[in-house]
């Protein structure tokens, strides 16, 4: 099955890249964009067939490597 992991910066953590994107959108004439926060998307193909076990395993992967929980939040979605 597949796991989809979204990693985003925690609220309060400065995101200069997001700010630069927001600025560029403004320059292109896209109005009304109050804030942009940039994150990461990671897709994993897993041998595990039990959704609960797969989710628990990916959760552990996030804590140990994929996300830095000092500055980032993550969400795990298991599909297929």
């Amino acid at each position: 099955m597949k796991a989809k992991v979204h990693i985003t910066l925690k609220t309060g953590v400065l995101d200069p890249q997001g700010k630069a994107i927001a600025h560029a959108l403004g320059s292109l004439g896209f109005g009304g964009v109050d804030e942009v926060r940039q994150g990461k998307y990671i897709e994993l193909d897993l041998a595990e067939t039990d959704p609960a076990k797969a989710k628990a395993a990916v959760d552990d992967m996030c804590k140990k490597l994929l996300a830095n929980t000092v500055i980032e939040n993550y969400t795990v979605e298991v599909v297929g």
């Binding site: 953590v13 400065l14 200069p16 890249q17 630069a20 830095n68 000092v70 500055i71």
Partner: peptide, 17 residues
């Protein structure tokens, strides 16, 4: 060292990118 947790905090992208 921050990634190991031996030191607190994190080093982020420079403010002016």
């Amino acid at each position: 060292l921050t990634e190991t947790g031996l030191l607190p905090g994190a080093l982020m992208r420079n403010a002016d990118l």
